[in-house]
Simulated assay, not measured.
Amino acid sequence: MNPDDPRARRTRAGLRTALLSLLADTPPERITVSAVAREAGINRATVYQHYADIDALVADAMEGALAHAARCAALCPLEAPTDGAPAPLVDLFAHVIEHGSLYRTLLAGDFAHRLRASVARELEERFATGARPPGTDGVPDRALSSHLAGGLVALLTSRVGQEGPGPGAEESAAVAWRLLAPVRHR
Rank of each mutant, 00 (worst) to 15 (best):
L75W: 11
L75P: 01
C76P: 02
C76N: 02
C76G: 01
P77W: 11
P77E: 09
E79C: 01
E79F: 05
A80F: 03
A80C: 00
A80T: 02
A80E: 00
P81D: 10
P81T: 01
T82A: 15
T82H: 15
D83W: 14
D83Q: 15
G84H: 12
G84Q: 12
A85Y: 12
P86S: 12
P86C: 10
L89T: 08
V90P: 04
V90T: 15
D91P: 03
D91T: 08
L92T: 04
F93K: 02
F93I: 05
A94G: 09
A94F: 04
A94H: 14
V96P: 06
I97M: 01
I97L: 08
I97R: 08
E98M: 02
E98D: 09
E98Y: 09
G100Q: 05
S101A: 14
S101H: 14
L102P: 05
L102D: 05
L102F: 04
Y103D: 05
Y103G: 03
L106R: 06
L106E: 09
L107H: 06
A108M: 06
A108C: 03
G109P: 07
G109W: 07
D110M: 04
D110F: 02
D110C: 05
F111E: 07
A112G: 04
H113Y: 14
H113A: 07
H113C: 11
L115R: 14
L115F: 13
R116N: 05
R116P: 02
R116Q: 10
A117G: 12
S118Q: 06
S118C: 10
V119F: 05
A120P: 04
A120K: 14
R121N: 12
R121A: 14
E122V: 01
E122P: 00
E122H: 04
E122L: 00
L123T: 09
L123P: 02
E124V: 05
E124W: 10
E124N: 11
E125V: 08
E125R: 13
A128M: 01
A128V: 01
T129I: 01
T129Q: 03
T129A: 01
G130K: 03
A131D: 02
A131F: 00
A131N: 02
P133H: 00
P134V: 01
P134M: 07
T136Q: 06
T136E: 08
T136N: 07
T136Y: 10
D137I: 14
D137E: 15
G138F: 06
G138C: 03
G138V: 06
V139G: 00
V139R: 01
P140W: 08
D141P: 09
D141E: 08
R142N: 11
R142G: 14
R142H: 15
A143V: 05
A143K: 01
S145W: 07
S145C: 03
S146H: 10
L148R: 12
L148G: 10
L148M: 13
A149E: 11
A149Q: 10
G150L: 02
G150H: 01
G151K: 07
G151C: 11
L152S: 15
L152A: 14
L152D: 15
V153R: 11
A154D: 10
